[in-house]
């Protein structure tokens, strides 16, 4: 299986502080991967680099069969290439309805002219309806997103991510603030998505990671410390020292 995303030898520093240090990472086209690491390990910065928010000082980031370099693309272009990102805090457009939020995210032409000429078709409505059902928001479509509960916002954001039909999903702490039942549903959904596309989950919660039952990459001080199954990495002495050792 060829890699969908290849990050090689990437370093970035802020004011002399090396947030990412010669990081190398790759993920296949249909794979679920969890990234764990203590605070300040560089998890968020890693996502920022892949999504184009932060430009690395050195290294290469390529994506897809043609190995397109992501470093020269803007955030919007990277998103259009097929990388979706879910933020830690749910960020939905609170002033707009759930349906509007989903329509915004639907895969379609993104240029101003085409958006201006865009009219909603029945197929789009069906897609919106299906996504809403999938995340349990079918009854809330006409409501303003700001009125949703925290968990519902998380779901809405996941639905928006799916609506984009990305090839790679970067998901930052999806389980935060969710009830146990919701977590289970999230796990289910993520593993289901990962059958057709690549999913990277950044997570703090070991329990949730165990549930995902996937390959784990441990980051520490901006570099990969260990990689493998959860059992494998938890037995790694380095990992125990820097991460588990501290609880």
């Amino acid at each position: 299986m060829s890699a969908l995303l290849e990050v090689s030898g990437v370093s970035v520093s802020f004011d002399g502080f090396r947030a990412i240090n010669n990081l190398t990472f790759s993920i296949g086209t249909a794979e679920l991967r969890a990234i764990i690491g203590p605070n300040g390990a560089g998890k968020s910065t890693f996502m920022d680099i892949v999504t184009g928010k932060t430009k690395p000082d050195s290294g290469a980031v390529t994506f897809g069969e043609k190995s397109t370099s992501l470093l020269k693309l803007s955030e919007a272009q990277i998103a259009r290439v097929g990388i979706g990102r879910k933020f830690q805090r749910p960020t939905v457009f609170e002033d707009q309805t759930v349906a509007e939020n989903l329509i915004l995210a639907l895969k379609a032409a993104r240029s101003p002219w085409k958006v201006l000429a865009w009219r909603i078709k029945s197929i789009d409505l069906e897609k919106v309806q299906r996504l809403a059902v999938q995340v349990g928001l079918a009854d809330h479509l006409p409501r303003k997103a700001g009125e949703l509960s925290h968990g519902q916002k998380q779901w809405l954001e996941i639905a928006m991510l799916l609506a984009q039909e990305p090839r790679l999903l970067l998901v930052d702490e999806p389980a935060a603030g969710m009830t146990l039942a919701e977590r289970e549903r999230t796990t289910e959904l993520l593993t289901q998505i990962a059958q057709t596309r690549a999913v990277v989950v950044v997570e703090h919660d070991m329990d949730f990671v165990r549930r995902l039952n996937c390959r784990v990459t441990v980051l520490h001080e901006g570099a990969v410390l260990a990689e493998g199954s959860l059992e494998h990495v938890t037995k790694n002495q380095d990992v125990i020292d820097v991460y588990l050792g501290r609880g």
């Binding site: 802020f14 947030a19 932060t54």
Partner: peptide
Amino acid sequence: GIIALRGRAAG
């Protein structure tokens, strides 16, 4: 500006 705050905060 000429003397910009650098680093993550400024980004």
